[in-house]
Design a protein around this nucleic acid. Structure first.
Lengths: 336, 336
DNA sequence: GATTTTCTAGTTACCGATAACACTAAACTA
DNA sequence: TAGTTTAGTGTTATCGGTAACTAGAAAATC
């Protein structure tokens, strides 16, 4: 690897001069600059970031921690985050926690050790508090996306679970449904809690008596809706739901798969709605009725807040950005 | 940030001793080890990787460069790569070239500068040769996935474009199709070239005279199949294709969207097949007939080869791993 | 008991870059 | 003309960690 010293020797200047040329700092005579630049070119010099971040205490690397890289929602988040990071001269280190607190912890340690300048993180759940506190202790700025964490006050970019839930449920109610089941994520995740709360509240406001047996929490990862779905459809007709509100795209898909296995048709027998598109390309199979969140912007805005925090030109108080969902009504919830 | 010196002072030992405890190297008395470990715990010490990689000349960071992070194919590659990397004690820096040589170049420079130990890369095209040569010059091991590059001999993990194409086409021919169009990626990408070659060869072997006007190359990113599709269906009946072989998942989806816009039904009027599943979760919308490549394994094996190369315990000659596709026949190519 | 070996721990130098300061010669000021 | 700026460049120390060497004390050997 070519170093600043190799350049210096060949150009007959001091390493410091080379550094100044590379960083465009300090006064350099035009003659020296040209001479040095020619040799930099010639020797294919690429600065060593490890050395740089050792003195500068900054790496220009940010980290994005998401919980599922195969989920198009996070994939779009990543794309947005990457675009913004690149635009601002930062790189992105992508980590995937798989909804696991342990994996997340390992990554957080790794990130600190790598000297990232900041972290944009979709926390695995409320236990993540511990990991976030580790970040705080190491004075690494972070921004939460999609989910907040109990007991942590920080910048965040989130969706509006209440509005999304309300719109989805009102749509279902408008379609004549009154027995609506909820298949939700685990309660240690803020969005799941909020969607649950909204679910009961919206039903109440609509004058529908909610049946607690119609609501379940399942893991995002195992995503084992089958048993619960089977229970639902084996309820007596008078209790059996005619619609299912799935908390996210993958739960919805899995639920529909379960329904199909049980020979239940969607939407004829049971309507299904959820948050976020399961398709990487929207409108290819315009089937699911969804509350679509602006995932790209989650990433984009998140990185923006993060960089503001890092560079210290943001407001003192924490910023909470709430991005509203857009409801897209498609055939999974429409009577023919 | 806590350093080895903080620990050393508090434990009343030399920094070197702390280093030895942290790395489990050299002889340390049980007593000292315990003392030091306690303080490490207490002070929440996390090693500084920049410093480490400066002396060790290795970072334990690998990079995965893919061309489209929103494509489920690459998402699965990433998952596989990540799993293997983690298992081997490495981290993954994910970069997204968006099929652009320029973006790829920027990333390659960044990676070298970051001191990654190795790169797993799906090259944007044949021009990537230049970037790969930069890697070689900087003595950074790399492995190609999915695509090879003219003039570069290195380890690689690829699919079998010939077999996949053959099986897809034979299936179509078996369904009675003889006018089969090809909507392919750009010719500077090896897989596109190979699929094109296979397409003409298989048709020839089947005794079908290929019509060059039925084959087109479009960009993976713009993905503007509409014009070509419109041309196709406005051909006189005797020339008009009854099936389309799309080179990849996104082209296929886009093609189907175009067909729908033009009121052409799939598969009734035109059958469509392609490489790779467009769905992150297979079998949710079991619609497209595909040659499914083991994307997860592309990543997993790729990282394995890469680490072998880095750690120098692989065979001297370059390894070429070819992973065969599995053809999955679904409704997009089946007559009712 | 003297010598060698083995443990355990410390010292020094260096990785590549840069901040902070030092220095020289030319340009400017009074 | 002497004194002061200023432009351009060099020197030194440092970031945090580790390799390579050194050194003292205990254990083993003869």
């Amino acid at each position: 690897m070519t170093t600043i010293y190799d350049i210096a020797k060949k150009a007959n200047v001091s390493p410091m001069t080379v550094s100044r040329v590379v960083n465009n700092s300090g006064k350099i005579s035009e003659k020296t600059r040209e001479k040095v630049e020619k040799i930099i070119e010639e020797l294919n010099y690429i600065p060593n970031n490890a050395a740089r971040s050792l003195t500068l205490k900054q790496s220009k690397i940010l980290s994005l921690v998401i919980t599922d890289i195969t989920n198009p929602f996070y994939t779009k988040v990543a794309r947005g985050a990457e675009d913004k990071a690149k635009q601002m001269g930062y790189r992105l280190l992508l980590s995937n926690s798989d909804e696991s607190f342990e994996k997340e912890s390992e990554y957080v340690d790794m990130l600190i050790s790598s000297g990232v300048d900041g972290v944009l993180i979709a926390p695995s759940g409320d236990e993540s508090q511990k990991n976030l506190k580790t970040l705080i202790k190491n004075r690494i700025p972070f921004v939460l996306i999609d989910r907040h964490v109990k007991g942590i006050d920080c910048d965040l970019v989130m969706g509006d679970s209440y509005q999304g839930t309300r719109q989805l449920l009102e749509h279902l109610i408008g379609q004549g449904h009154s027995k609506i089941a909820l298949i939700n994520g685990p309660t240690n995740v803020s969005t799941a809690r909020e969607r649950e709360k909204a679910y009961f509240e919206v039903l109440r406001l609509a004058g529908i008596e909610a049946d607690k047996k119609l609501a379940a929490n399942i893991s995002y990862m195992q995503n084992d809706s089958y048993k619960f779905v089977k229970n639902l459809i084996s309820l007596p007709e008078s209790k059996r739901p005619t619609a299912i509100f799935a908390a996210n795209n993958f739960i919805a898909i899995n639920t529909i798969k379960s329904l199909r296995q049980l020979n239940v048709r969607v939407p004829e027998d049971i309507a299904v709605v959820c948050f976020d598109d399961p398709d990487p390309i929207p409108d290819f199979n315009p089937f699911l009725t969804i509350a679509a969140q602006p995932a790209y912007n989650f990433g984009y805005m998140g990185i923006q807040l993060l960089i503001e925090r890092i560079e210290g030109n943001g407001p003192a108080e924490k910023q909470k950005v709430i991005l509203p969902p857009e409801i897209i009504i498609r055939s999974s919830s429409l009577k023919k």
